[in-house]
């Protein structure tokens, strides 16, 4: 029974492996996926900040736990134990310290949240009723495309040449969203049937799509991401085929993006097709 205190080693493994696994995680490719959005780094920064903070608390409390278990084992500590019902001052300290920390985190992140969620408005030049040319800044930015979640795919609708959605010249596509690089863009996301969630891991974007509501998301693909494709995931259970709802976001240069739209338009309106022998679509 004198060996009973060795049980505390079991608990010691928790901080050791717990921290160890996080240290090894980047090598295992289990870290936040590459961030290609402009605002993503604030989220990553917050994540890492909280990780260090909680990590420190985690290690400290777990170690204290193990140390006390080890030290005050009944066999190695047969002497009368401390008899106390608590300490008022200690309680005050360990109430105020965490409270302050938590409040700090809370306030620290509000900006990042607002930046992500508040409506983007674009200044629009117009002539007012008094005939003075001015800038109106309360016009919501026009969306670059509308993405509609549907069991089990993402339907994408570009506004077409007239720049207005839901007209006859709209360009339609499925699961394959193209966006221009280095431009802050707005997407309207909708649902046709049930809840879906528009999740772009690499852009740190996630927004549930609620039938009956129009949601908007904003992000900006940073330079250097052009020419690459990123996963578009559905993150809200939408039925049996939830896992199938896979889309792709491709970041294009401005010229590639225009070419893509043109190609889409050409495909949509072409009136002849080359014979199949040469139509190897690869």
């Amino acid at each position: 029974m004198g060996k009973a205190k060795y049980w505390s080693i079991v608990y010691l493994m928790v901080p050791i492996f717990g921290v160890g696994l996080f240290v090894a995680a980047p090598a295992l490719r289990m870290w936040l996926p590459a961030d290609v959005s402009e605002h993503g780094h604030t989220i990553d920064h917050l994540f890492v900040f909280i990780m260090y903070l909680t990590g420190a608390v985690f290690v400290a409390t777990e170690c204290a736990l193990v140390w006390y278990l080890w030290k005050y084992d009944s066999k190695s500590n047969p002497a009368p134990t401390k008899f106390t019902h608590g300490s008022h001052s200690l309680e005050v300290v360990w109430t105020i310290l965490p409270a302050a920390t938590l409040l700090f985190i809370a306030i620290y992140q509000i900006n990042a949240w607002a930046d992500q969620k508040l409506v983007r408005r674009a200044p629009v030049e117009s002539v007012g009723p008094d005939g003075v040319r001015g800038t109106a800044d309360d016009v919501p930015k026009a969306p670059i495309a509308e993405v509609t979640g549907r069991q089990f795919e993402w339907r994408i609708r570009y506004p077409g040449p007239d720049g207005v959605l839901h007209t006859r010249d709209d360009l339609l596509d499925v699961n394959d969203l193209h966006i221009p690089v280095d431009e802050e863009l707005v997407l309207v996301i909708k649902s046709e049937d049930v809840l879906h969630s528009f999740f772009l891991p690499n852009f740190r974007v996630k927004q549930d799509v609620v039938p009956g509501m129009k949601q908007k998301v904003w992000f900006k693909a940073v330079k250097g991401s052009e020419g690459r494709s990123y996963d578009l995931v559905c993150a809200e259970l939408c039925g049996w085929g939830h896992y199938k709802m896979k889309g792709r976001v491709t970041v294009d240069t401005q010229s590639d993006y225009r070419a893509w739209l043109e190609k889409l338009s050409f495909e949509q309106h072409k009136t002849s097709e080359p014979p199949p022998a040469t139509a190897e679509e690869q």
Binding site: A4, K5, W7, T61, A64, L65, Y68, L69, Y72, D73, S74, N77, P78, T81, K82, T84, G86, S87, L90
Partner: peptide
């Protein structure tokens, strides 16, 4: 933690 601290722990 405070309870364990200074106790006489039976595993």
């Amino acid at each position: 933690l405070g309870t364990i601290w200074g106790g006489k722990i039976h595993f």
